[in-house]
Design a protein around this nucleic acid. Structure first.
Length: 370
DNA sequence: GGCAGAAGTTGTGGTTAAACGTGAG
DNA sequence: ACTCACGTTTAACCACAACTTCTGC
């Protein structure tokens, strides 16, 4: 083993550690935060680019995409832990549940999606079906005069804010098969493979989009701007009549940083956006609304906040790309796709040489005779 | 902090059984 | 619709050197 080889392996492991637990930008636009993983492309994408890439042709639309793991941000999530409201890849699930938190957490399989679902379909897929278009309409702090009683408040700050009580909106879609045990118990020959006596998972679970639902919902709202929602007449009139929250209007037209919109303070105007320089590479004091008290647009009832210092990831660059940027991004994506390696990659040539010279019995490695 | 040794983990390829897909009867 | 035969694909298996992480001094 040469020194340079050792160095390369060391640096490789460092690289892996470095990129772990750090949200990475979209492989396509390189600006929005990636929330989806496409196995076929080995690409991490934001919702907007996912739509753009996978709507290109029918072949691409068949790619299965899943959410990124909440823990390592590097692998497709396959397990939903409803106890922690997180989505995890197999490795992280194993680490967090088999080593430290054995079996007390309620977990289930997480499935991806194919084709190019509409925003409302995506909301359903991600377990937001009860919030759906209303939340997209009223966005953050908007509200509007729609009925709905007390729960309306929660949806008002749906996009940008973590609000207590709001999690009740999120509905867990109970998968038909929850575990291997379910498969076994459901395999009685007379039952026609339907799961029998397997209680469905509780309906009041949180959404299946993991810990980053703010980011996901923010991107979905961006997506909704370019996609005519399947709205009812009342909602359409509401949008057109100008009754729409000024905040939402602002979002649709000028807000470049929807993900960070909740960084405003209660004393600031509702449509004020945190300047870019405060968002880049520095810790900023932000305040989360702790209770959903925002009423309608005219009321401007102040939202109560709790202060919290968070590390802002410098990825909050505009989602809106110029045509040049788009072309550039497309080029980058295509180049990356070209250089993708499907063939087997040997990390340690010395091990290969060693394996090839090993004694075998029916293809298996045999013990060396000393 | 630096070093040495122990302990634990990873990666390697040929064979084969099982799984899977397809077409014929 | 079903069974069977046949071809193709996939994943598990094995031992151990190389590599990484931990521990004690």
């Amino acid at each position: 083993m040469t020194g340079s080889h050792q160095n390369s392996t060391h640096s490789a492991s460092h690289t892996q550690q470095d990129k772990a637990s750090t949200p990475s930008p979209c492989d396509y636009c390189n600006s929005s935060r990636s929330v989806l993983y496409c196995r076929a492309d080995s690409a991490k994408l934001c919702f907007k680019c996912d739509r753009e890439v996978h709507s290109t042709n029918q072949l691409f639309s068949k790619h299965t995409r899943t959410l990124l793991c909440d823990s390592c941000y590097d692998s497709p999530a396959s397990i939903l832990c409803s106890t922690e409201s997180s989505v995890l890849c197999h490795n992280c699930d194993w680490e967090s549940h088999n080593l430290s938190l054995p079996t007390v957490h309620e977990r289930g399989p997480l499935e991806g999606f194919t084709a190019c679902p509409s925003v409302s379909e995506l909301l359903t897929i991600l377990g937001f079906e009860d919030v759906g278009k209303k939340a997209l309409l009223y966005g953050d702090g908007g509200g509007g005069g729609d009925g709905g009683g007390g729960e309306k408040n929660s949806a008002d700050d749906f996009m940008g804010c973590e609000i207590e009580g709001f999690s009740d909106f999120f509905v867990w879609d109970a998968p038909s098969v929850v575990s291997l045990d379910d498969l076994i118990s459901s395999s009685a020959p007379s039952h026609n493979f339907q799961a029998m006596e397997v209680p469905p998972l509780p309906k009041n679970r949180k959404s299946s989009c993991g810990r980053h639902r703010e980011e996901i919902l923010s991107q979905l709202r961006e997506l909704a701007k370019s996609e005519p929602l399947d709205l009812d007449t009342e909602q359409q009139q509401y949008l057109q009549s100008g009754n729409m929250s000024t905040d939402l209007e602002h979002d649709f037209k000028t807000d470049k940083f929807p993900s960070y919109e909740w960084h405003r303070r209660s004393s600031e105007p509702m449509n004020q956006v945190v300047p870019l320089n405060t968002l880049l590479n520095e810790e900023v004091a932000v305040e989360h609304p702790t209770s959903a008290v925002s009423e309608n647009n005219e009321g401007k009832t102040p939202i109560s906040f709790k202060s919290e210092t968070v590390s802002v990831v410098p990825k909050a660059t505009p989602c809106e790309l110029t045509s040049q940027e788009r072309d550039s991004a497309l080029l980058r994506y295509k180049q990356k796709k070209k250089t993708r390696r499907y063939e087997k990659h040997i990390r340690y040539e010395s091990r290969k040489v060693r394996a090839q010279s090993r004694i075998r019995v029916k293809g298996r490695f045999a013990k060396m005779e000393h």
